[in-house]
Amino acid sequence: MRLNDIEILEKLKIGDQSGYKDLFDLYYIPLSVYSLKYCDSFDQAEDIVQEIFVKFWDDKLYLKLKNSIGPYLFKAVKNNTLSYIRKNAKYRFEEIESQVNRLIEDEVVDIENIEEEKRKLYKEIEALPEKSRKVFKAIVLDNLKYKEAAEQLGVSVNTIKTHYSNALKQLRKSLDIIIVLLLV
């Protein structure tokens, strides 16, 4: 059973440590997904979120919170991810990034929602030519580097890039939203 913020805070404040696991179960994946949206690195997203969980416990931050934990955690994840990005990503189109990020709703991320998205995506992927499908899966879903994907599929990095382009080109057409430009 999943507890809500208030129930978790109550547990933590009376020193019931199982509340910390409840907090983790409730927020770890949504927070990591949220961070990922900004930083695009599976590992970095998890590192950032784990660091926040550690800090939350070590600094007893729950003692300062009253009715909710989620907003605090999401905000901390966003701040830390953005500061990481600003330090590490050299070439970014800030405005477009934030525009796109706003379109991706996230605070309400739940597993069912993502499962639904996943079903749709897989349906689209199945329609791709075999090689494009494999490359797209390897790079985007399984987080392989071009070089790793090339080794795994026994082709050159350039071939990987070509299949990857083809896959994205075709999949983009399946987008069921219209991006409304608010950019000036």
Partner: peptide, 17 residues
Amino acid sequence: FSEYLYFYKKSRRIGFT
């Protein structure tokens, strides 16, 4: 460009989960 980015980011989080 935004559409590509949007699609890519949505797919990435599926891969992540």
